[in-house]
Amino acid sequence: MKGEKAMAADARRVRRAPALGLSAALLIASGSGYAPEVRAACGPLPKLLAETWMDGTLPQEPSTQVQQLDRDSFVIRQSVKTNFEAPFLYLLFGRDRALLIDTGAEGGRIRPTVDRVVAQWLAARGRRSIPLVVAHSHSHGDHVAGDAAFRDRPNTIIVGLKPSDVASFFGISNWPDGVAKFDLGGRPLRIIATPGHQAAAIMIYDPRLKLLLSGDTLYPGRLYVPVNFLAENRASVDRLAAFAMKHPICAVMGAHIEMTSEPGRDYGHEAPTHPDEHSLPLPAQTIGELQTGLKEPLDTPGQRQVHDHFIIVPVPARAE
């Protein structure tokens, strides 16, 4: 039986029914769009992170903060004091190689943190080295600015920034419709092409943790969609929703936090501090909510379609 907080959250979703469509709002609230075995595998949104993220409210904070999801999975946050974007990066290890997703925004010092985590991981296993693949959730500057620091790193491959580069490296044969398998060694990931926010955007699904790493396509913040790529974004989220119907996703973890803990309330653009932040993980049901929201008219740059966990914001046409 649902608790009072869950029932209140459901009620808020249903009250937004005029924007979403009543049947869709009820579907999102109940989670009934997911196969029973998928829902049963996850249950409530798990508590994945032990610490509170640094948020710029203290006089001093380190340039990065690292939290561990399990012995082979790490989340790195770049300090908002180094860049207002304060992006999140993900470092995943398998037996044969490690994968770093994004290298941060201007002003960051990501490589020393990555090198430290890699060294600690190797030492814990009595190993001397592991190849590192540096890939990107997408190719915007606040996710690729640290690439240069990795170009001279030994035993490291940096995936290119164009859709063709991404498709070729991961073996997505029918971009953007295909889903590729990328095995770190005993840890097979799924690479899902999601162009729309940006042409080379991808998501990474980790079956071990049942996590979807969703970049800037879905996170607790303002989801910017260029009006000339609305169709691509809608198609990507439709494919993602179909994937989620068949794969247990216990949490969606994106690349930023721009929402407060108050439903539907975000921080101002380029906010220097983030007091009382929304949690980073989102429930899987937000995929369906995003899919439904994108079906509404979104042709006017600057309009805001407000949801509890995110805000869809169409922006002027972009080159890619």
Rank of each mutant, 00 (worst) to 15 (best):
A244P: 00
R222Y: 15
E232K: 12
K246Y: 11
E277G: 11
V227W: 02
G288A: 13
N233C: 12
Y267L: 02
V225D: 01
A271K: 03
P275G: 06
D276A: 14
D276L: 09
I257A: 03
P283I: 11
Y219Q: 06
A231C: 00
P272R: 13
H278M: 10
M245D: 14
H278R: 15
S236P: 04
L240A: 07
A231R: 14
Q285E: 15
V237Y: 03
N228H: 08
M245V: 13
S279Y: 06
G254R: 01
H247R: 14
A251D: 04
S236A: 15
T273S: 11
T286I: 09
L223M: 10
H269F: 13
R239E: 00
T273L: 03
E232I: 03
A241E: 10
I249K: 02
G221T: 06
T286L: 05
N228M: 07
M259P: 03
P263H: 05
A244C: 09
F243S: 07
G288D: 14
M253V: 15
T273M: 12
P272Y: 09
S236Q: 06
Q285M: 11
G264I: 03
P263R: 03
L230F: 01
A244D: 06
T273H: 08
V225L: 07
G288W: 10
M245R: 15
A284R: 15
E277L: 12
R265N: 01
Y267M: 03
T260V: 05
E270K: 14
I257G: 00
M253L: 15
G264F: 01
S279W: 07
L223A: 01
P281G: 09
R234S: 04
R222Q: 11
R265Q: 12
F243W: 11
E258G: 02
V225M: 07
Y267R: 02
T260A: 00
L218F: 08
D238S: 13
V237A: 00
A242K: 14
G221C: 07
L240C: 05
A255P: 01
A242N: 13
T273F: 05
A244M: 09
Q285F: 09
V225K: 01
E270I: 07
M259R: 02
H269G: 05
P275W: 08
P275D: 08
L282V: 02
T260N: 00
P226H: 07
G268R: 13
Y219E: 06
H247D: 10
L240Q: 01
A255C: 10
G268W: 04
K246W: 11
D276H: 13
L280D: 00
V252D: 01
P263E: 04
S279R: 15
I249Q: 04
H269S: 10
G221Y: 02
T217A: 13
